[in-house]
Design a binder for these strands. Structure first.
Lengths: 341, 341
DNA sequence: TTGAAAGCGCTACCAG
DNA sequence: CTGGTAGCGCTTTCAA
């Protein structure tokens, strides 16, 4: 493990000069620079993370984090927050602070305002669950232009110039659900799909993946696809109606939120444990429904990683000068049943 | 974030003294010590990991790692090795080296010899996949007494005084397999179990967990439990015989290694895709069998974590003085099917 | 029993 | 364009 000091000694220059050469700052005599570079290459120099991290303390680096509040919406984000908190504690030891703001689910202007506030407060990088709106994309572009990298979390947004995306590959998560249904039903099923909204890309992607993975299974029929707008009460009503109209349904694919409402409908129709049910995520109500046997399996998407990984990416980028190898970091789809929950 | 320097200033003493008090080294005037402690408590002092880590460089700390060689035995350990390598690279930057040795699967004396060699070479901590033999337990005790902490990996060993265990909870992993079978067969099945040896605790634990989780499902019968001694050729023969004798078998639980051999037997009986098959781990041959539909699901046990986590535990213990909260760190049981492999 | 200082690897600032 | 130095937090050694 070569150090800057060793290189400096071998090259007969000071550490400062080596630093300037290796990090392209200041100006250095080309010949000196060449010599330093040669020695660095020869010694297989890689900067020491500890040293770099320790040295950025004085810079008072700050990251911003904007995500959907879980109180009004989806408790899924509670698990994301816990991932954020763990990583923030670690970063705090490095002298980096994290400022978290919660945005409304359907208000892009509010989100843009929060971004402005965070810029004002002097953040050096941002993680965000972006609302799919041109203004948000534009604002992300603006941040990037200012030298403030942005990482999107849970949902991606096109044409925004964001540094990276961390979250589910929704098509794959739909396929996984399809695979489970195939296995649970031995390839014969009449399935009802309950989804938030087919207008939301993540949701429709899941349904597409589900269909794709079942394309070769002619005895699995999709009876109907109904929308619940991620609301438990609507979910209850539409599911109840669906089961009423289609008594042939023997399995349900709950492709987004509103899991609890749908399962209440199943129970009120006395169909619990008679239908095969597959859902997503593992919020507290879902966990109970897994435990009592109403839901057979749920597919999770590493919410804690969704919280922490964006901060790691920002840290690597800003402190260690490491650009993410891939601009999409997909979380694993973990299958949870009663026994491994 | 209080620092030693701040405490020293407030207490009107030198950093050295604060260090002595907070880390119980050397001797300090009780009154001075009390004052320092008070201030530290007041400031909510927690030592900075970066500082501690940077400072141990000169100590030239070295960890030993003994695990079963994957060449002759189970390619599962290839994934463990990859976890070791990633963590080793990180530790290398901290000035810590890792020396890995491979031991024979059934030779406790060889393992003890390797431990002696590593002691000789001056290791400060050891991770090991221990062979369940009193001599090995005794040697681990010896290391611990010498102040060299030992972490067991993948398999635990009683009465050894090891610091911690990292690996599967085998009972739970058996239950997970049982749960999957229940879901795949809608609670009606004639299942054959192929296991390495019921004399090996890990193996019998899995079978016990499997039975436990199916205790309330009277229509799931365990037709027979046969042993393959983790050998693919034996596995082939015994599976073939089992399927021959018991044509009523409609599902197989492959509770340990020898997955490939068992599946070859299934194929040679033209029963592939007709039996429900559940296995463990995801070695290359298993992956292919998942992809071609022979195996329906496999349960993995985070081999990469099994490689890296023991090194983290040793690091925390020796460098940061953090004793593991729990002496068992259980890996997750991840269910892999064709779509999320 | 205590203080002072050097060092782990890197960055930044001030002189020259 | 370059060198020297101090500092990030902690440990350790030497001297007092």
């Amino acid at each position: 493990m070569a150090t800057i000091k060793q290189i400096a000694n071998l090259a007969g220059v000071s550490r400062g000069t080596v630093d300037r050469v290796l990090n392209n700052r200041g100006t250095v005599n080309p010949e000196t620079a060449a010599k330093v570079r040669e020695i660095a290459a020869l010694l297989n120099y890689t900067p020491n993370k500890l040293g770099k991290t320790l040295a950025i303390k004085k810079k008072n680096i700050k990251f911003g984090y904007i995500l959907f509040s879980s109180t009004n919406d989806n408790p899924f984000f509670d698990d994301v927050v816990s991932g954020i908190n763990i990583k923030s504690k670690e970063l705090k030891e490095y002298g980096i602070s994290v400022e978290t703001r919660f945005s409304e689910l359907r208000d892009p202007f509010n989100q843009v305002k929060l971004m402005d506030q965070l810029i004002e407060s002097g953040i050096n990088g941002l993680a965000i669950t972006p609302i799919n709106h041109p203004d948000v994309a534009e604002k992300i572009k603006g941040l990037t232009a200012k030298g403030i990298p942005v990482v999107t979390v849970n949902t991606d947004i096109e044409n925004s110039g964001r540094l990276a995306y961390v979250g589910s590959n929704y098509l794959e998560s739909g396929k996984t659900a399809g695979g489970l249904l195939r296995l649970f039903t031995s390839g014969k099923a009449n399935v009802g799909i309950i989804v938030g909204s087919m207008d939301i890309l993540c949701h429709s992607e899941r349904v597409n993946g589900f269909k794709q993975s079942l394309a070769n299974y002619s005895e699995i029929n999709i009876v109907d696809i109904i929308e619940n707008y991620d609301d438990d009460f609507i979910s209850f009503e539409v599911t109840k109606a669906l089961l009423d109209i289609h008594p042939e349904i023997d399995s349900l694919y709950l492709a987004s939120a509103g899991v609890y409402g749908a399962c209440r409908a199943v129970k009120s129709a006395n169909l619990d444990k008679k239908l095969k049910i597959i859902s997503y995520d593992c919020v507290p109500t879902t966990k109970l429904l897994i435990e009592d046997g109403t839901i057979d399996a749920t597919i999770t998407q590493q919410p804690d990683v969704q919280g922490s990984k964006p901060l790691s990416i920002l840290f690597d980028y800003l402190v260690l000068n490491i650009t993410p190898k891939n601009d999409r970091f997909y979380t694993n789809h973990e299958i949870k049943i009663r026994e491994n929950i």
